[in-house]
Write a protein that binds this DNA or RNA. Structure first.
Lengths: 201, 201
DNA sequence: GGCCTTGTTGGACGCATGCGCAATAACCTC
DNA sequence: GAGGTTATTGCGCATGCGTCCAACAAGGCC
């Protein structure tokens, strides 16, 4: 294994860990798996991460942040707050994002045993909520939405989407995903004083 | 350890496993833990359960079924479909039921690695949905609710409640549970053509 | 009371895990 | 090119896991 600058190596380890995590799940990811994926020794990983907890947390952070910034960029390309909200829902509806749901599910379950993972997942969850709050606040300022409690509304909508994600991941095929998404969109429209059908393109 | 009839011993093992599971989580539950809890040897457990997967599935089934029948009994004590639906939501709102949410979360996460647990959780999930379907069908027949798609409505409401459960378990303190419950109740009321406030006592 | 079925024991086995550490080798500086 | 810094190795250690099995003992049956 060629010698690498600390920052680059650390980065490479995280990348490899994310790949393993997506394939085998967070709980089944081991130091040896990551080392094999990188083609390096297992000792190297512990040279950069004090514990498995830290490594998994860092890897989860990477994956979730990527998702978050991807959504942020998509939002930036949208004109008004209403269109942004539509984009937000469309992101959740994408079938290719099942891996993200599975990852969040893993993180929630591991949170009980791994402090670092718990802290990271809580932080990122709040980040998603704040993203929604921002959109709603923007919509209210534009006069396109009405909402007395943006913080609360964001939590409610997020809970709704999480439940949807849970059902589709845990019981694929049983639930009609599209139907549940449209429903949640309709609910959000009513919650925010939007006309029905505004968010669907 | 006194000799016991197979059915009773099997029952005792499941009981002990549930207790350990509630305390340490499903993923952290080991054969030795269960044996120690029972005050027996570890070999005894494998005399009744072919694998750890089977044992965990049986224990999860026990806990979830208990919850299910408990709710069924509460529903039986309620008069009409509307009151039954109110009872259904009240069950979810109870703070003492956090252990149930945590257990479901564990089951969903373990499902990827443990076939028996997966089958059990899917079966019980459908059972909960059917319970809701029954209530809605009943309500429509009584003329108290309007719903064109009881099956779909049940899945949507269940997703909503699951999301709520997820947020409150994964991020205790961050989300105002009562606010989210009331919201989901209000949503269900609208979904089923009920007057606002009907389900809240 | 002897026998035989069967619930029960408790440790052994093999495997996998996270982690630590002395040795090695690559790179940089002078 | 010598020397020192440090990224990297790869094996060893302790621990924990699920599973298995030969031995043991407690009943029931005749």
């Amino acid at each position: 294994m060629p010698r690498l600058a600390p920052a680059l190596r650390r980065d490479a380890i995280i990348t490899a860990t994310v790949e393993v995590m997506l394939r085998k799940g967070m709980a089944a990811t081991t130091v040896r798996d990551v080392a094999e994926r990188m083609g390096s020794s297992s000792g190297l990983i512990h040279h950069y991460f004090a514990s498995m907890d830290d490594l998994l947390a860092a890897a989860f952070e990477r994956a979730a942040q990527q998702d978050l910034t991807g959504t942020r960029e998509a939002l930036a390309r949208s004109a008004g707050a209403v269109e942004q909200l539509g984009t937000f829902f469309a992101t959740y509806a994408r079938a290719e994002q099942d891996w993200a749901f599975q990852l969040w599910l893993d993180a929630w379950a591991e949170a009980g045993r791994r402090p670092a993972v718990r802290r990271t997942s809580q932080r990122l969850n709040v980040a998603w909520q704040q993203l929604l709050v921002q959109i709603v606040r923007c919509g209210v300022r534009e006069g396109a939405m009405t909402c007395g409690d943006p913080e609360g509304a964001a939590w409610r909508i997020l809970s709704l989407l999480d439940g949807l994600a849970l059902q589709t991941v845990a019981h694929p095929g049983t639930v009609d995903r599209f139907a549940v998404v449209s429903w949640s969109v309709a609910l959000a429209e009513r919650e925010l004083g939007l006309q029905a059908g505004t968010l669907v393109r």
